[in-house]
Design a protein around this nucleic acid. Structure first.
Lengths: 217, 217
DNA sequence: AGACTAACGCGAGCTTCTTCGCGTTAGATT
DNA sequence: AATCTAACGCGAAGAAGCTCGCGTTAGTCT
């Protein structure tokens, strides 16, 4: 869980509840606020230092760079989107899509993911953390799909992680590429689309080709 | 077409075929190569200057920043993915998905889009250019879907741009978030998924809700 | 061909970013 | 309570990034 950048900070380290943890909290809060205020463009060590009251040298010592800070913030805000269990996959997909919409409805969170992706483009270590971070979340969310397959809602050869990728993809496209706010319509569209596509066998496990009904209606 | 950063450079300006155009060509080529070599992480004005043989001051004068350079490069490489017309929408979707795969199959191009998104997170002007750039391409690609609607392959209330967004989204998710290379399987999956989802009415125009078959099989 | 001007090269100078050494503080240890 | 050490504050020094003014070059215009 601890990033490669910071020698200490996560619970279970040498100074668990003490000064170290306090400064980390203060710093990450400052990064988050600064990010919400000015985006990644206006994010600088100097500002984080001023807002948090922590000296710049300390920031460089523990996090090495802005990228490291953003990266650490990402891992901190991990457990914010819980997995639904409504009993049916379309219900679950819809619920999750709405959760994601609520999450990224806040400009702060869009700024955060923007910053993380931007940081990953510059720092290979951040890229690694980002990949494994989403990898874990994807594997976790995949359980939702596995239940659906067990219930017989989807073909047995369906790849759970691909389904969940397909659910998330429209949001990140909207945020990073189209650069428009996410809304309820996107959530409905994403959930409906993934459900239809998954039923059509568009997300097969490796080895199985996709069900080829793509030759006409 | 001209970015907000550079006073000259695009064809039709004051010094069309002369030194200005040559330096721009040399500089953008240098940026591209440097990007392919070290990614956005290793991209610096100094290196671009050295590789292109153009003085640093000139780079700052014309492009103002690294972000401006990357932004200009994006607009330069715009017309590289032609629109297919196979006669059927599933055929078109598949062909386009394969084109996109070929395009982003090159690490260089993944680096480029990474750099562009990263630059947009820092520079609001780049963000604007990025949005309008993809907006235009989306509108253009939407014609593919309009033809399909006219042929009766899709519901009349289908929103062309949403369909095309949905086709592109998986690629950008793969590149920027999952951080794994794009492959043929992704192309097939994306094309198949969008086709199934579009037929199910998952991409309605504003005002029409998505066709609600999301309550169970 | 000659005059005119936009764009470039050059290097100095400024700002911002980043690191380092040393003394101090907070928390753990016994 | 006394000791011991990791983490922090502080300021200075070094490096990198960025701007500016001036002279030169290349392309245009008459």
């Amino acid at each position: 869980m601890t990033t490669a950048h910071q020698p200490q900070g996560a619970p279970g380290e040498t100074r668990p509840g003490g000064r170290t943890a306090r400064t980390r909290e203060a710093v990450l809060a400052a990064v988050f606020e600064e990010l919400g205020a000015g985006g990644f463009a206006g994010l600088t060590m100097e500002k984080v230092s001023q807002r948090s009251g922590i000296h710049v040298a300390t920031l460089y010592r523990r996090w090495r760079s802005i990228e490291g800070l953003v990266c650490d913030l990402l891992t901190e805000l991990s457990a914010d989107v819980p997995l639904p269990d409504t009993g049916t996959l379309p219900g679950d997909l819809r619920a999750l899509a709405r959760s994601i919409t609520a999450f990224y409805g806040e400009p702060r969170m869009r700024r955060l993911i923007e910053a993380v992706v931007s940081a990953a483009a510059r720092d290979p270590q951040v890229a690694t953390v980002l990949r494994s971070f989403f990898g874990e979340r994807l594997a976790l969310a995949g359980q939702m799909v596995e239940r659906a397959v067990a219930r017989g809602e989807l073909p047995a050869e369906t790849d759970p992680e691909q389904v969940m990728s397909a659910l998330g993809a429209p949001f990140y496209y909207r945020i990073l590429i189209a650069r428009r706010p996410v809304d309820a319509a996107l959530a409905e569209s994403a959930a409906t689309a993934v459900w239809a596509a998954a039923r059509a066998g568009a997300y097969p496990r490796e080895g199985h080709g996709p069900a080829d009904d793509a030759t006409g209606p």
